[in-house]
Amino acid sequence: MTFPIVPDLLSSLFKKPNTNPFPAPQLPPTVTGLLDEVNQGKAELNPPVPAPERLRGKMTYNRETCIGCNLCIKVCPAHAIEAIPAVKKVRFYVSQCIQCGQCTEICPKQCLALSGEFLNASHDRYDRSLIVER
């Protein structure tokens, strides 16, 4: 009978956990309660692991340079971009965006980019923070 995993198991007893305890080392009774406490300054969040340089996160949009050519809408695989024909601008729905970054490549004015921001969870799909207009 050989169990070659035993030395690995024993050595693991003396190692720290491999994962980053985010947002708190222990599971709080309620997550919203924890966030309220953080807002009041009573508790602190454990910071997430720093994002890698190339991470594709939330959209950024420069409304001033946009010329309303709608090329980004043509290549968006997720139909996450809506045209506003009256002002010749566009609107991005982050909840629908799959962060492929194809729109940033086709944009002739380079007014689109993907930032490293990745904490985009919300209860509401149409939350103000999940619609990028400017």
Binding site: P52, E53, L55
Partner: peptide, 18 residues
């Protein structure tokens, strides 16, 4: 996890590399 981190470092995402 090591290779997932490497892929994220190279492509910008852990799963859908684009």
């Amino acid at each position: 996890e090591n290779v997932m981190d490497l892929v994220e470092y190279l492509t910008g995402n852990r799963v859908h590399y684009a």
